[in-house]
């Protein structure tokens, strides 16, 4: 979608990714033709609310979805067809080339192993080497993620660490094999505000130092503003708007993004109602024919209900799938900035 501005081949290229969960009772279309790409060393935020398909997309990229999920489309990482990987190649891909940081490290880490054991196992599985070498590397990694007294924390069990330290340990494990692509699924959502900003700054620094491509899933516009280079806004399984983070948050081109910005509580006058988006997101078992946002959209016309709009490129590097791009009001932040 940014083909006319970008000459170099992207690190990750996702085309028409579709994920359906089929059961006897219903077919849930969690991802419905998501298309985006990521350059090396870039941070892309997948921004969306619950049910937008952002986490399912992330799991599809890592091939972590259960068997009953029907995945279609194309996912290429450095020219390699990710959806075709099998067996040994898939295992080397997971953890080796792509690593993931989860929202809740307490459930993502095995409670019967220490942080050190997690790290050593990961390092030796992908890189080999002796136990002593792996240990040395593990402590190095714990220091890299700024865990104080790393050598002592090496022998700590996950439950003995605070939330922030656990998430740092989780990041150390993800980085242990030098991945080209880091996937982060709301890694700071469960953390307190004063801890969240520490982890965000750490992730931003590590990403810049190590030059990893990073996909960061979040529902929080503030988190996206803090860490992303570009954002892809998802709604009902599709990327409906994409562009550089500052531009998208200042001047959204899709009514959903504009509505999300207006409804996020942020320095609104206390005596006025917030401009909320009416209604709820659509039922993924029964998606409407046209634009999925049309039923909640103040700008929707008959044409919007006919077919899902094709991408339009209102500005260099910007994409929106909306027929009414020209009518979308700029974000309230424009006046603030």
């Amino acid at each position: 979608m940014d083909g006319h501005t970008e000459a170099a081949a992207p690190l990750l290229d996702v085309r028409d990714l579709t994920v359906k969960f089929v059961s006897r009772e219903a077919t849930v279309t969690a991802v419905n033709g998501a298309t985006f790409s990521l350059r090396a060393g870039e941070v892309l935020c997948l921004l969306g609310e619950s049910g937008s398909g952002k986490s399912v997309t992330l799991r599809a990229l890592m091939r972590l979805l259960p068997k009953q999920a029907q995945v279609a489309g194309r996912v290429e990482l450095g020219g390699q067809d990710v959806l075709a990987l099998q067996g040994k190649a898939l295992r080397a891909f997971r953890g080796g080339e792509v690593a993931m940081v989860f929202q809740e490290p307490m459930t993502a880490l095995d409670p019967v192993y220490t942080i050190g054991q997690h790290l050593v196992e990961m390092i030796r599985r992908h890189k080999g080497g002796t136990k002593a070498e792996a240990r040395a590397r593990a402590i190095e990694l714990l220091e890299l993620v700024k865990i104080p007294s790393a050598a002592r924390r090496f022998d700590a069990y996950p439950h003995e660490l605070s939330g922030g330290l656990r998430q740092r340990a989780m990041i150390a494990i993800a980085l242990s094999c030098g991945p080209r692509l880091l996937l982060a699924d709301e890694p700071t959502t469960a953390l307190d505000a004063t801890v969240q900003i520490q982890v965000l700054i750490l992730l931003r620094r590590l990403q810049q130092e190590l030059g990893m491509g990073t996909i960061f899933v979040t529902h929080d516009l503030g988190v996206a503003a803090e860490i992303a280079d570009r954002v892809a806004v998802m709604y009902a399984g599709r990327v409906i708007e994409e562009g550089p983070v500052a531009d998208v948050l200042r001047a959204p081109k899709h009514p959903y993004t504009a509505g999300l910005l207006a409804s996020t509580v942020h320095e609104q006058a206390p005596d006025q109602d917030i401009a909320a988006i009416p209604g709820s997101p659509p039922d993924l078992r029964r998606l409407p024919g046209g634009c999925s946002f049309a039923p909640r959209c103040g700008l929707a016309t008959e044409a919007c209900r006919q077919a899902f709009p094709d991408p339009v490129y209102p500005a260099p590097g910007r994409m929106a799938r909306c027929l009414r791009v020209a009518d979308v009001l700029p974000s309230p932040l424009t006046e603030l900035a």
């Binding site: 969690a30 049910g51 709820s280 039923p295």
Partner: peptide, 27 residues
């Protein structure tokens, strides 16, 4: 992903009695 949605889209009911904007689109 926790799908909590039940409301399918359709037309917004012109029911002015509802004070707020919870639009139920699949009665």
């Amino acid at each position: 992903m926790n799908e909590r949605v039940v409301v399918a889209p359709g037309a917004i009911p012109a029911d002015s009695e509802i004070a707020d904007n919870e639009v139920d689109l699949a009665p």
